[in-house]
């Protein structure tokens, strides 16, 4: 029996290790080549002369931080607006009965169905006409397509899990509607709110199609700006790797900070009382 268990554990761990290598190798490779010079890019694998030249070129000699800041502004504000508008919307969808409620909820979800490439051309024309092309506001607005449905659907589930009597009890206890919402409901939806916001932020941060088509030189997100390292004569893989590595950092840091909320927050409903 004991031997059987040891063998079982070994197989299990072996498979998990294999998967970890499979999942992490591309990231490892990206970090690896960010230290390679262009000259050694194609003729070395693991043994090479590490250099910080790429970092120097990308971070100090281009507008990298400007792109980084643009990305932060666009993504963070988009998520904030989604939270401000999405939480009340989710509450309404969970609590109130109105005509075509499910159709409306489905419509919101369906924004995530269509490939972005499908809508981006007409949006490009419209944005050019109404002057939203290459503005922060324009990008933040279109990012709502990505962040809002996710937030509404996750938070709606949380509200539905909170029994309506809890609200009634709080009202009877002497709290006004707003106080009930802020003091009694918000703490209960917090895990969902945090994890959905983070996920929405990552989706917004990683988005490529919208900023590629709907912004130009004024607002440039990091995903689009990374293309600049493909020069006309050569592709600077090392510099691209640096750009990608650094741009991956915010999402990784956030995810690590709230890791305990993340999986539980998206899969669990509120704790039943």
């Amino acid at each position: 029996m004991k031997r059987k268990r040891i063998v079982g554990n070994a197989v299990k761990n072996g498979l998990l290790a294999l998967y970890a290598i499979f999942a992490l190798f591309p990231l490892f490779w990206m970090v690896l080549i960010s230290f390679k010079s262009d000259a050694q890019m194609f003729n070395t694998t693991f043994i090479f002369d590490p250099t910080l030249e790429n970092y120097d070129a990308v971070l100090l000699r281009t507008d990298y931080f400007k792109y980084f800041l643009d990305s932060i502004i666009v993504s963070v504000v988009a998520v904030l607006i989604s939270v401000l508008a999405g939480v009340p919307a989710a509450y309404a969808l969970a609590r109130y009965n109105f005509k075509k409620k499910e159709s409306l909820a489905f419509t919101i979800l369906s924004f995530r169905f269509a490939p972005e490439i499908l809508v981006v051309l007409p949006l490009f024309m419209i944005y050019q006409k109404i002057g939203l092309y290459d503005t922060y506001f324009g990008l933040i607005w279109v990012y709502q397509l990505i962040t809002m449905p996710l937030l509404i659907w996750v938070i709606r589930g949380y509200f539905e899990d909170i029994s309506v009597e809890i609200e009634h009890a709080a009202q009877v206890d002497g709290y006004s509607w707003w106080q009930v919402f802020l003091k009694r409901l918000l703490p209960l939806i917090k895990p969902g709110l945090v994890s959905a916001s983070l996920l929405a932020f990552i989706f917004a941060w990683n988005n490529f199609t919208f900023p590629l088509m709907l912004s130009g030189t004024h607002v440039e997100t990091i995903t689009v700006a990374s293309l600049k390292y493909i020069a006309s004569d050569t592709v600077h893989y090392g510099q691209m790797a640096v750009a990608a590595t650094v741009s991956a950092l915010p999402a990784v840091i956030f995810a690590l900070l709230i890791q305990k909320h993340l999986v539980r927050g998206l899969s669990f409903g509120a704790v039943k009382g």
């Binding site: 009597e165 009634h168 009890a169």
Partner: peptide, 27 residues
């Protein structure tokens, strides 16, 4: 009011649940 399904606040302790009306702005 005492609710049939209790309607306790799941994130608050028993103490805070009982104290809730006495901490509300009105009472």
């Amino acid at each position: 009011m005492v609710f049939e399904n209790y309607a306790l606040y799941p994130n608050l302790t028993v103490y805070e649940n009982i104290a809730s009306p006495l901490r509300s702005p009105l009472y």
